[in-house]
C-alpha cells in the first residue's frame, strides 16, 4: 500500500500575537525576525495517521511519502515528516507557488502525486494555519477524480477499504469508502510522534525528490490566483482589562468572585 501525505510549510502559528505583524502595503504577514517556519500542524497529524497505518500493518509493505508544493522551502523544516518516519519527500518548488491559490496548489499536488505512481490513500491536514481555507484537499480529490472524506479522527484500512471516524460538532460519524481516497485529518486523531534520533539521522541522509512544474505539464502562467487580495489587516482589540489585585492570589480570587457578582455575571 502507498500513502501520500500533502504537507505545507507555514509561518509558526505559535508566534505570540504581540509579535504577529502585517505589512498592510505589501498585503503580507511579516514573520518575526529569526522565526523559523514549521510544517502545518494538521499536516503532521496526517503524517501521524499514515505512520499509524504502517505500524498497524506491522511496518511492512506500506510506503509513506510526503508531497509539498510551495516556494522557499527550509529543508530542515520540511524534513520533519521524514524524521518522524516517512519514506520520501517530494517537493515542487517554484516562485509561482508562493502566491498560488487553492486551485493552483491542488492542481500541482494532484499532478505530483499522479506522477509518482499509484496511491491508495492521500492524507492531508484538515486546513492550513495560514489561510485556514480547508480547500486544497478537496481540490486534490477533485483533480484526481477521488472521493474526499474530511475531518478524520481515526482511520482503519482493511480489505481495500478505509473506515473513517469523522469528528463533527457534537457528533462522530463513521463512513466507509473503497480505496483510493483523499482524507483530511484533524488534531483529534492524536499528537504527531516525536522524531527519534535514528529518524533524524536517517532524514539527514535523505535528499528530497525535486519536481518542476514542467514535469507536471503545468505552466506557471496558469497558476495566477482567481481572487485578488485587496487588504490584509490585524483586527483591533479595543477592550481594556480591569485587573483584580488582592493582597495575595487567594484574596484576588475572592475579590474576583465579588466583582463578578456586582456585575450580575454569576
Amino acid at each position: 500500500m502507498r500513502i501520500a501525505i500533502c504537507a505545507r510549510q507555514v509561518l509558526d502559528p505559535e508566534v505570540p500575537p504581540s509579535q504577529f505583524k502585517v505589512d498592510e502595503a505589501a498585503r503580507r504577514v511579516v514573520p518575526p525576525p529569526g522565526a523559523a517556519p514549521v510544517v502545518n500542524g494538521f499536516d503532521l497529524n496526517a503524517v501521524e495517521a499514515g505512520l499509524r497505518i504502517r505500524d498497524a500493518a506491522g511496518g511492512q509493505g506500506v510506503e509513506v511519502n510526503v508531497f509539498s508544493a510551495g516556494s522557499g522551502f527550509v529543508m530542515d523544516v520540511m524534513k520533519k515528516p521524514l524524521s518522524m518516519g516517512a519514506d520520501r519527500l517530494v517537493l515542487v518548488d517554484d516562485p509561482a507557488l508562493a502566491s498560488a491559490d487553492a486551485t493552483a496548489t491542488a492542481r500541482v499536488l494532484a499532478g505530483a502525486v499522479k506522477l509518482d505512481g499509484t496511491y491508495d490513500l492521500i492524507l492531508c491536514g484538515r486546513q492550513a494555519s495560514d489561510w485556514d481555507q480547508a480547500l486544497v484537499p478537496i481540490g486534490v480529490a477533485e483533480f484526481l477524480g477521488l472521493p474526499c472524506v474530511t475531518l478524520a479522527r481515526l482511520i482503519t484500512v482493511k480489505d481495500g477499504k478505509a473506515r473513517i471516524e469523522r469528528t463533527l460538532p457534537g457528533l462522530v460519524q463513521t463512513v466507509e469508502v473503497p480505496l483510493p481516497v483523499v482524507i483530511t485529518v484533524s488534531n483529534e486523531l492524536g499528537e504527531p510522534r516525536y522524531p527519534t534520533l535514528r529518524g533524524i539521522m536517517a532524514a539527514g541522509r535523505k535528499q528530497p525528490v525535486m519536481v518542476k512544474l514542467a514535469d507536471l505539464g503545468i505552466d506557471a502562467a496558469d497558476l495566477v490566483p482567481k481572487m485578488t487580495l485587496t487588504r490584509l489587516s490585524v483586527p483591533e482589540k479595543r477592550r481594556t482589562v480591569e485587573i483584580i489585585q488582592g493582597q495575595d492570589d487567594a484574596d484576588s480570587g475572592r475579590l474576583l468572585a465579588r466583582r463578578l457578582r456586582e456585575e450580575k455575571l454569576i
Partner: peptide, 13 residues
C-alpha cells in the same frame, strides 16, 4: 485568516 489573527479582503475577479 491566520487563525483569526488577521482579516483578509479578496476581490473575486
Amino acid at each position: 485568516v491566520y487563525g483569526g489573527s488577521a482579516l483578509a479582503e479578496f476581490e473575486m475577479g
